[in-house]
C-alpha cells in the first residue's frame, strides 16, 4: 500500500540535486552546468514547489550572494587587476547564487520523513545493523520535535510576558527550552519502548521508490561516483576527468 502521491520519490530528488550540485562545485563553465540547473529547477517546480516560495527563495539567495559579491570587490587579492577582480567576484556570485538556490529549493520538495522511512524500511543493512529502525524513528521524532519546540517557545514567551520578565531578559527562555528538549527526548524514547518498537517490524505502507525510480537513482549514483573519481584524477574539466577515468 502506498502512502504518498508525490510525483517523484524524495530519494530520486536528492540524487538529482547532488548530480546538479557537483558540476556547480567543481566546474566553472556556465555552459556545462547552466542547462542542468535550469532543468533541475523546472523539475522542482513540477514536483510541487510553489512559485511564491520559489520567488522568496530567489530574493533571499540573491541578497546572500550579493553580499559575497560586494565583499569580493572590497577585499580582493592584492596582485589582481580590476578586470580579474570583477571576473572572480561575478563568477563566485553566480555559482554561489545557483548553489544556494538549488539547495534551498530542494529542501522544499524533499520529504525528509519519506527519506528516513524508505531508509528504515529497506531491507539492506537491517540484518547487519540492529539499530537501524530505532535510529530512523528517533530521527522522525526529532523532526516532529521541531513543531513541539516552536510551540513550547511560544508558550514560554507568553509565560515570561505574564510573569513580568522584561524583554531584555527573554534570552533566558533558551534554558527552559533546552530542559524541555531533554524532557521531550526522554518521553519520546519511553513512548517508543512503550509502543514496542522492534527491529524486525513490518511496514504497512510502502516507502521504497518504485522500480523505475530505483533504476534512475542507481544510474544517477553511478554517474556521481564516476564524476567524482574523474574530477579527482584530472580536476581541470569534467569531460577531461571522465575521459581520463575511462582511459584509466
Amino acid at each position: 500500500m502506498s502512502v504518498r502521491n508525490d510525483k517523484f520519490h524524495s530519494q530520486l530528488i536528492l540524487s538529482l540535486t547532488l548530480w546538479t550540485l557537483l558540476p556547480l562545485l567543481f566546474n566553472q563553465n556556465f555552459y556545462w552546468w547552466g542547462p542542468l540547473v535550469l532543468a533541475t529547477l523546472s523539475l522542482f517546480l513540477y514536483a510541487g514547489m510553489r512559485i511564491n516560495a520559489f520567488l522568496k527563495i530567489i530574493i533571499a539567495v540573491f541578497m546572500l550572494s550579493s553580499s559575497v559579491f560586494i565583499l569580493n570587490l572590497l577585499y580582493p587579492a592584492t596582485e589582481q587587476s580590476h578586470h580579474q577582480i570583477l571576473d572572480l567576484a561575478l563568477n563566485n556570485f553566480i555559482r554561489l547564487f545557483f548553489l544556494t538556490l538549488i539547495s534551498v529549493s530542494a529542501s522544499t520538495v524533499i520529504d525528509l520523513e519519506q527519506l528516513i522511512l524508505s531508509w528504515a524500511s529497506s531491507k539492506k543493512g537491517r540484518a547487519s545493523w540492529q539499530g537501524k529502525v530505532r535510529v530512523a524513528y528517533v530521527l522522525l521524532a526529532a523532526i516532529n520535535a521541531m513543531t513541539q519546540l516552536r510551540e513550547e517557545s511560544e508558550r514560554i514567551l507568553i509565560v515570561m510576558r505574564f510573569r513580568g520578565i522584561s524583554r531584555f531578559k527573554r534570552f533566558y527562555m533558551l534554558f527552559p527550552l533546552l530542559v524541555y528538549a531533554i524532557k521531550y527526548s526522554q518521553r519520546v524514547a519511553l513512548a517508543l519502548i512503550a509502543r514496542g518498537i522492534d527491529e524486525d517490524k513490518s511496514f504497512f505502507f510502502n516507502y521504497i521508490p518504485i522500480k523505475d525510480e530505483q533504476i534512475a537513482i542507481r544510474r544517477i549514483n553511478y554517474f556521481l561516483l564516476f564524476y567524482s573519481l574523474g574530477w579527482f584524477v584530472c580536476p581541470n574539466t569534467l569531460l577531461a576527468g571522465t575521459i581520463n577515468l575511462c582511459q584509466y
Partner: peptide
Amino acid sequence: VFQNPYSQLVCP
C-alpha cells in the same frame, strides 16, 4: 499509553 499525549506520536 502515557499521561502526556504529545510526545507519544512518532510517525509523520
